[in-house]
Nucleic acid binder design. Structure first.
Lengths: 336, 336
DNA sequence: CTGTTAGCGCTTTCAC
DNA sequence: GTGAAAGCGCTAACAG
């Protein structure tokens, strides 16, 4: 059944030339006769020749594949980002292998290991909620594999990253609430290991101070993104003597969990307590009572940018020392 | 920066043995000294040896990767299925490359082409809404690449497939509605090229007849799954002199589109007109007014089964002629 | 049990 | 312009 693979050798035989000639013709080598080239292409087509990537790889030591690790595809933010990555990368003839960490450090590590053994040319990553140190990614660096982080970028290290302008987005969200007369605003943030959480907090702080809103320490909560923990934290907020009038959430999922918990407690979300969040996921369009507003983070574009940056690094001459780049993408508060 | 790759040759030198000995040791070849083997492993570890997959591949002519084409990862059904596939496949040391057709025939073809040139060992597919013929997949067969379809399987061809028991699920859904006293039931089906649509229709028909419900030709509609077309078709149903009391939808997305359209027309879904659908997506848990009931299709398990079947075919001896398998997974109607 | 040898399919000097 | 030949890292007969 297995159609025996056509090789350049067979093409060479068919034409009575050497395999080097065929190889050169196929690569559009400059020093080759136009006639020969055309003939080679003709025969290659006739025989249905498909180059064997393994052989090329073995020779060139490049796999033309890049690895992507991200928390989970089921989150629309990430599946949109992947689409952006794929569109850029496949246009350049690269392949993508995707691995989901499902917010587990161990799975993330396994993915990195497998990227190393499959010799990917580069990695794009959005770190798991459990990832607190950069250590594991160093391993990739040791093998000379370039990495670009997006959205969930690690803290305190100089790395290539593509991220939304979260500080500003958080500020804007608070300003939006303040304009509606809200004063007591809480934040339900994500794991402290993520830089985007610091930024969210910073934007929140700045806004509170500049707009003269009350800064209450207990209004600042963070969740590990699970439904349980999120429910617990919103409960704590609701149980306060003076509960917040609004909550800025890490993302739409956190907002939805929190809102459901409110309902359970007989509190009407976006009426008794307002919700604003991040991500602006398409699924919110199906909701009768979505978060009041959500920050659009342009996942697709973020994926595109990350892929472009990575390819740029891969294609850079070996001796060039590149400064890690930090690309910031503008966000937009979308009022529902 | 690029750490020069460690090869078995270096391990051999370090130990003063031949490379074949190293190769055999690493593969746990039976005829090798325990002592030597241990030493080889020790040095391999010390040197941080990682086998070069390209070389192995070139030799063995197997890539240890399988390709997956499916409509879109953003649909939870598919991202769940992928997770099932990944879990099975990665346990056996295989890699997965994923390609989204986004319901476009052209993209699906491109994916297949790329699978051929990257020499995947097998393919798992869920066909696009535009795919009406099996033709393109024949190409894979020509190259001896085994294929397993899941959920969206092609019609009229003998192929390996894993699918839900849609006929029965559709029957059950109608019975559920009938039990609630509903008599006029419409169906908003998917593209006729999909076998699962035929099955849905068959279950619907059987149920109507056996339960003595009216069979109305205009109650049978199909959509190309887009929001626009779905809105149009539900509008047609609503505009009838005697509109249906309930609608059985292709999946949750179609149901949600249809329900939103109803709202636009001032008709309250699940009160004025009932909705039952397929997929039972987690997102429906966030809805205040989800479809009345939805058929759980166990996407994760479907992915697992498809992967297991594919691996089984790949591992089968070349001379064994396998009958195409048709694995049916039981579904379950979940009332919300 | 271990070493020698011949390739897998392709690229790439080095000659002519 | 084209051919001969070496070799990428590894496996698998074939000999000991």
């Amino acid at each position: 059944m297995q159609k025996s693979q056509v090789t350049i050798k067979q093409i060479a035989q068919e034409l009575g030339v050497s395999i080097s000639t065929v190889s050169r013709a196929l690569q559009n080598h400059p020093r080759i006769g136009l006639r020969t080239k055309e003939q080679v292409f003709a025969v290659a087509k006739k025989l249905n020749y498909v180059p064997n990537p393994a052989a090329i790889l073995l020779k060139k030591n490049r796999t033309s594949t890049i690895g992507v690790v991200l928390p989970q595809l089921a989150e629309e933010f990430f599946s949109q980002a992947i689409t952006g990555i794929e569109d850029v990368i496949s246009e350049k003839g690269y392949n993508v292998v995707i691995s989901q960490s499902r917010d587990s450090l161990e799975r993330e590590n396994r993915a990195i290991k497998s990227f190393i053994s499959s010799r990917v040319d580069g990695v794009i990553a959005s770190i798991s909620a459990e990832t607190t140190q950069y250590y594991q990614f160093r391993e990739l660096e040791n093998y000379g594999v370039p990495i670009v982080f997006f959205d969930r970028v690690p803290k305190d290290v100089r790395v290539n990253k593509v991220r939304g302008n979260i500080v500003e987005a958080a500020y804007e969200s608070i300003a939006f609430l303040e304009a509606r007369g809200v004063r007591r605003i809480a934040i339900l943030n994500g794991p402290a290991s993520l830089e985007i959480c610091d930024e969210r907090l910073m934007g929140y702080w700045n806004a509170l101070k500049q707009l003269g809103l009350p800064v209450v320490q207990q209004y600042i909560k963070s969740t590990d993104l699970s439904r349980e923990d999120t429910s617990k934290k919103i409960d704590e907020l609701l149980a306060m003597e003076e509960p917040p009038e609004a909550v800025l959430c890490f993302n739409d999922y956190v907002a939805l969990y929190a809102m459901q918990q409110c309902k359970q407690r007989g509190i009407v979300p976006n009426k008794d307590i307002l919700f604003v969040s991040f991500a602006n996921l398409p699924i919110t369009a199906y909701l009768d009572n979505p978060p009041l507003a959500s920050v659009e983070q342009f996942a697709y574009q973020m994926g595109e940018k990350a892929a472009q940056l990575l390819l740029q690094i891969i294609d850079a001459p070996d001796d060039s020392v590149l400064e890690p780049q930090d690309i910031v993408i503008d966000t937009k508060l979308v009022v529902h």
